[in-house]
Amino acid sequence: KLLSSIEQACDICRLKKLKCSKEKPKCAKCLKNNWECRYSPKTKRSPLTRAHLTEVESRLERLE
Results as ranks from 00 to 15, higher is better:
Arg38Trp: 09
Glu55Ser: 14
Arg62Trp: 08
Pro25Tyr: 01
Arg14Phe: 03
Pro47Gln: 05
Lys24Cys: 11
His52Leu: 06
Ser4Gln: 10
Leu3Lys: 01
Tyr39Cys: 01
Leu63Ala: 03
Lys32Arg: 15
Glu7Ser: 09
Ser46Val: 02
His52Trp: 11
Cys30His: 04
Cys13Pro: 00
Cys30Thr: 06
Lys24Pro: 08
Cys37Glu: 01
Ile12His: 13
Lys42Phe: 11
Glu57Asn: 00
Ile12Phe: 15
Ile6Ala: 10
Ser4Val: 11
Ala9Phe: 02
Leu53Cys: 07
His52Asp: 01
Lys24Gly: 13
Lys16Trp: 04
Glu61Ile: 12
Cys13Arg: 08
Glu57Trp: 05
Lys29Asp: 04
Gln8Pro: 09
Cys27Thr: 02
Asn34Thr: 15
Leu48Val: 00
Pro47Val: 04
Glu36Lys: 12
Pro47Asp: 08
Glu7Lys: 08
Leu48Ala: 02
Lys32Cys: 09
Leu18Trp: 11
Lys44Gly: 03
Arg45Thr: 04
Glu36Asn: 15
Ala51His: 10
Lys17Ala: 04
Lys29His: 04
Ala28Asn: 12
Val56Asn: 01
Ser4Asn: 08
Arg38Thr: 15
Lys16Val: 01
Leu18Lys: 02
Val56Gly: 02
Lys17Gly: 03
Pro41Thr: 08
Glu57Ser: 06
Ile12Ser: 09
Arg38Asp: 13
Lys42Tyr: 15
Pro47Cys: 05
Pro47Gly: 06
Ser58Cys: 15
Lys16Gly: 02
Ala9Pro: 03
Cys20Glu: 04
Ser46Ala: 07
Lys24Val: 15
Asn33Glu: 10
Gln8Glu: 03
Arg45Asn: 02
Val56Lys: 01
Leu31Ala: 15
Arg45Gly: 00
Lys42Thr: 10
Leu31Val: 13
Asn34Ala: 14
Trp35Glu: 10
Cys13Ile: 06
Lys26Glu: 11
Tyr39Ser: 04
Pro25Glu: 08
Lys24Asp: 12
Thr49Met: 07
Ala9Ile: 08
Lys44Leu: 15
Ser58Gln: 13
Leu18Ser: 10
Leu2Asn: 13
Cys37Gly: 07
Leu63Met: 13
Lys22Cys: 01
Arg62Cys: 09
Arg59Trp: 02
Glu61His: 12
Thr54Trp: 05
Ala28Ser: 07
Ser5Gly: 09
Ser4His: 11
Ala9Met: 01
Leu60Ser: 07
Lys19Tyr: 01
Leu63Ser: 01
Arg14Met: 03
Glu36Met: 12
Ser5Met: 12
Lys32Ala: 11
Ser46Met: 05
Leu3Asp: 15
Glu7Arg: 08
Ser46Trp: 01
Leu63Tyr: 06
Ser58Thr: 09
Lys22Trp: 05
Lys16Thr: 00
Asn34Met: 13
Lys22Val: 07
Cys10Ile: 02
Cys37Asp: 07
Ser5Asp: 14
Glu57Gln: 06
Ser5Pro: 08
Lys24Met: 13
Tyr39Lys: 00
Lys26Ser: 12
Pro41Asp: 08
Ile6Ser: 11
